[in-house]
Every structure is written in C-alpha cells, then in structure tokens.
Design a protein around this nucleic acid. Structure first.
Lengths: 341, 341
DNA sequence: TAATTCTTTGGAGACGCTTGAGAAACGTTT
DNA sequence: AAACGTTTCTCAAGCGTCTCCAAAGAATTA
C-alpha cells in the first residue's frame, strides 16, 4: 500500500541505493539534479520512510522508553508523574526522540515487561521512581541497555537524578521550627521508594540535630496518596498529645491531611500547620494554599533525557544529578503560639 | 550481542523456522520435546525476540500512537489529558498494546509529525482533543491508517468519542437556573476545539430556551487554562452589571475563576456561583469545592483504545461513542437571592 | 592510443524474524 | 512392494532500509 524506496527507484530508473543516499543526504554524494527528482517523486508518492525497517538495519530507534512507577491502577493521576513526564516529553521532543511508555498491568507480566525493555524498540530507558524491589532496572543494566532513573535508588552504573531531599526536608522543618513548632509530625510516603525513605531519615536527623525527642507515633504512613494523607492525619489528630505541625513527604498527602483536618474541625494553619513536598500545581489551588518544598521535577525529567541520550551515543552525561529544593512559604503554616495563648 | 533465534537454532542443530514455531506456538506444530528444549535454550541465552524484526515481517507493531492536543508547552500538566491518558494506558495494557506518545515541539515539524504517524511503528492512532486546524488526522485517514479521536471534530470515517456536551451543559445551567440565577455568564474554552465550541453553543441554546437575553459580554474566553479563567473572571467582575453565576467550560478555568473572585474580594458562592466541567480531581480539592459536570474521561480513553484495536483487526468497533455527563453539586453554587436581600 | 586515476552508480548483502512450499522419514493400507 | 497420508523438519523468500564493494564511465596522464 504505502510506497517504498523501491517504488521511487523504479519510477526514476535509478538504483535503490541512490534513492536512499538522496533522501538521507547520505554518506555518499548525489548530484543535485537527481536529488531534486528523487524528492519530487517521493513527495508525489507520499513516501514515508519506514522507521521499523530503518531500525532494523541501524539498530537505533530514536525512541526512549519510560517505565513509570509500578503502582496500582490509575497511575497517571499522580501529579508527580505528570511533572516528570512533562519534563521528559518536552526534552525528548527537543532532541528528536520519541517516547514509548511502558504499560504493565499485572505482576505476572513482569517478565514480559522486562523483555519489552530490551526488544529493540527503544534505545534506552528512563525509570521513574522505581521501587526498591524493582528488578527490571537491574535486568536492563545487565543487558547493557542504556538506562537512567529519576528519584530511584542509587545503583551501580545507573545515573540517578533526584532532588536534594535532605536539604529540602531541612528547609521545611527549619521553617516550622522557626515558627515555634516543637511537636512536628511526619506523614511518610511509600517506604519502598527512595524519596520516601530519604525524607523520613532526614526528618529523623533534623529532630536529632535540634534535640527534639523522636516520637514513634508522630510518624505515620501515607502511601503518597490523598487518601493515605487523610488516614494519617486522622491518626495524628487522635493522639492524646497531637502535633502542632505536620510535614508531609509529598503534596498529595498534604492535601489529604488538609482535607481531613477540616473534616475534623481543625483549622489550618491556626490549629495545625501543614507542609508538603514537590511544589505541585495543586498545592497552590487548595485552601489554604500549602507551604511546600518545591523540587524541579520537570527539570529532573529533562536532565534524565539528556543523560540517556548521551549514554546512547556513547558520551558521558554532563548533567549534575542532584537538584536543589526550594521552600515556598504559603498559607498553611503559621506560628502555633498565637493560638495557644 | 543479544542472542537471536539463529543462535538457538545453531545450538540445537535444528532449523531457524523450527525454533520460531516452537517459540510462538506458531502456525505449525512442534513436538513437545523439541519445544521444551528450545525454550530451555532460549532462557539460557536470555533470548528476547526483536519486536522490530517481527514488525518488519508481520506489519504489526502492537503499539498504538497517541497524539495529544497540539498546544503550547507543558501540555502534560493538563488534568484533562491525564484522565484521558489514564484510561488509554489502562486499557492498552489490558489489550497488550504498547503506547507511543507522539511529541511535537514546533509547528515547523508538523510534517515530520505526520510521517511519524504512518511510519510503521504504530498500528493506529488516537487523537486526543485535536484542533480544528489539525491536518494530521486527515492525513492519517487518507493513508488508511486506523484512527479514532477523543473529543474531536466529527470527521468522515473517524470514530469520535465524546461526552454529551449539550446534556452536560444543560444540567449545569438548569442547576443554576433552579437556584434562581438569571445572570449567568460563560467562560469558554479554546474555540478551535470541539468541546469548547459545543459547550458555548449549548450555553447559548439554553439561554434561548429559557428566554434569557443573550449578553455578548457575558461570554469570555478562558483558553481552558487557570490563567485564562482568572483573566476571564476579572473581566466579568468588572462589568457594570456583573453576572451572579459563571459556567466554565472546564474545571481549570473554574479554579482560575475561583481564585480571581477571591482575589477581588468576592465570596464564592455567596456573591457569585461557579460551575466547572470535567469532574477533575482538582475540582474537589479547592475551597470551596467546585460544582461541576463530570464526564467519564478515562472511560472515553478506554473506549477509544478498544475501538482502535477493533479497527486494526478489521472488526467494527462496538462501543457507543457518546458518553453521559453527570452533575456533581458541591459548594461553589448557591442561590443568589439569599445574599441580594 | 593506451594506461591510469577519479567519479558516479548499481548490485547485493545484511538486520532478525515469519511463514509458505516442499523434502524426508515414518507408518499404514492395499 | 507400491501408494498414500502424517508428521517433522529444512529451505528460502521476503519485509524496507542502509551501506560496502565493485563495476562502469569519465577524465587525466603517459
């Protein structure tokens, strides 16, 4: 149906190779006159080179694969992933790379998934926030496939891009501390993810450095979801000695916490301060707007793409891999004193 | 580097075709004994079939392409697109289809874009909310490539999936009308998109049916964005005779309108009621929560995938193409009377 | 004019896989 | 023993493209 390079050759009575050279401005020179004719016929026949055939012979597909975190359904409703994808897509477009999103819908397909990564349709893979248990990434590296990760666990030979978690957490907690808070709880994310672990550890480190006693029950699990944030906040507010401030490992949990606080009749920030993490658009749309630690997620995505392309082409990636965090103070935090009095 | 079907054949001293048949349970039978041996060796050599080579000969890639709306940068931050992609990915996974997201980063690459659609890497394409001026979709059909659209303009031979816009708009406006509103403004979306046009027309039709005089200045453009919603709301509230209610063509603009209303000291819903469209998660996170018309966007995406797969396999799509809208009454709407008095 | 060099162009092999055509081996039937 | 059907397997032809190699032609030199 679709026309091929052969059709063009036949039409002009020249060889296939000449056509190929003409179309690609190929390694060999082709007289301008012939070139023009080839291009004209190509246009006339509505010729489109088959990327598949080209991949076959060049071994390159100019396509990068994205492996989103392996969570439950509806994964594409996560703001974090959106921001990451946003950066990835913009940069991929700029670098003339297409993006193949790997979908997986059950654990049992894990192996099939793994083989997709190395079946030749992508030149390299970006893992977004992979779980600790994620073996695909090891498989990919073992097969010498180019791969990088965003917010992943440090892994031998895998370039990992992430935010300065420790510094970010410090900014958030210092902010609360400076406001006068001493009873600061933490709603942690999924502890099989690197960022969640790192943020929890940084939280503990901060308490230690400020000589605040670490209270086991002030750390609750929120699974990085709004629902999880609600549940966690509910738990925290039921404590005999509830905290005056809550630091959440991401904005979604902060939103959940906010909603739950209101549901329980607690005013934010008057009765309890809330800080999020990520700097998602949503954090600014809720009421009150949420104080949060912004990480340049889109830039992480873009940097990952650049690094991956470098690896594919055999260059050494030049991007730094740790990105700065920035505190954005909004309306969900205030001093606890004013209202205690 | 990677092992091929040939390596397996050589190792076992059998023909390449036998290996192929064994691996695929192919068209021809292969004795269990041989099959077992082949599979064992395949595993040992860590063999992964090359999808590229397979595509080459079968002409199928088991991959569907997605063309997101051709808007400016950071497109992946649109909740609408997320919900659509969410449905698409889930369903694609279920049907064992991979998803290639087409990125495009400039108008000048339009032609390159078009050829990507038909270069053999995808079996079919889903256009999400294509613009009126989008020619790619026509190109795709003219090349007999399978394609469907979500919220697109009706086009000969292209299955289009969309929500019952007219009914949805009616629900929203009737709700406002029943509350007592008579001065109802409309913040419209991008008028090069089908949904935006359709919703504007439905708004006008409703006013006509209720014999409310259509006020030119009560229709403002919001471009489907939060920023646009803010600007539009600003314009509306500056009118000498401002409306008591605003119906927005999507939730993002409703959020923007909400923010702007607050910024101008107008209370929602006490002084002005706001209704959105889409039923995005965000519409429930803002304060006050927004009354909105929910459309099953994810289901639209899923249905589009099913239909596309049917087309690819030469079957007739069975899904209905118009989906119901549902009014979700929340806190952003109330009767105007109470406060006028 | 013949020999040499340079330029241009066509031929053909690969890439890894699928699959139809047909060969070989075997057992069964007449 | 011949004829036949089955089963099991090999051969080889592609799929569309890229690119090396060699052949043909043109230009230069002896």
């Amino acid at each position: 149906m679709a026309s091929t390079i052969k059709d063009i050759a036949k039409r002009l009575n020249i060889s296939i190779s000449t056509v190929s050279y003409a179309l690609n401005g190929g390694p060999r020179k082709v007289p301008e006159e012939v070139k023009a004719k080839v291009l004209a016929v190509a246009k006339e026949l509505n010729y489109r080179p088959s990327r598949v055939a080209r991949s076959m012979v060049t071994g390159r597909s100019d396509t990068i694969g994205i492996v989103p975190p392996d969570v439950i359904d509806n994964i594409f409703l996560s703001p974090y992933l959106h921001m990451a994808l946003n950066g990835v897509f913009n940069e991929a477009g700029r670098l003339h790379q297409d993006v193949l999103l790997f979908t997986r819908y059950s654990e049992s397909e894990r192996d099939e998934m793994a083989s997709m990564i190395v079946d030749g349709r992508v030149d390299g893979v970006i893992f977004i926030a992979p779980h600790f248990s994620e073996r695909d990434i090891e498989l990919a590296t073992s097969l010498h496939s180019a791969c990088v990760s965003i917010s992943g666990f440090p892994l031998e030979g895998v370039h990992t891009f992430s935010v300065e978690n420790e510094a970010g957490v410090h900014l958030a907690l210092q902010h609360l501390y400076d406001l006068g808070h001493r009873k600061i709880a933490h709603i942690a994310g999924r502890l099989d993810m690197h960022d969640a672990i790192h943020r929890l550890q940084s939280y503990q480190a901060f308490l230690r450095s400020q000589r605040i006693t670490y209270q086991e029950e002030w750390v609750t699990m929120g699974q990085f979801t709004i629902e999880g944030g609600k549940r966690a906040m509910n738990t925290l507010l039921s404590l005999p000695d509830p905290p005056t401030a809550v630091f959440c490992a991401n904005d979604e949990m902060a939103i959940g916490a906010l909603m739950e606080a209101y549901a329980l009749g607690k005013k934010v920030p008057e009765e309890i301060s809330i800080v999020g993490f990520d700097g998602s658009p949503d954090s600014e749309h809720v009421f009150p707007t949420i104080t949060t630690v912004k990480q340049p997620i889109s830039e992480l995505g873009a940097a990952a793409v650049r690094a991956l392309c470098a690896l594919i082409e055999g260059r050494e990636p030049e991007d730094r891999s740790i990105f700065p965090a920035e505190l954005i103070v909004r309306a969900s935090t205030s001093s606890p004193m004013e209202h205690v009095s």
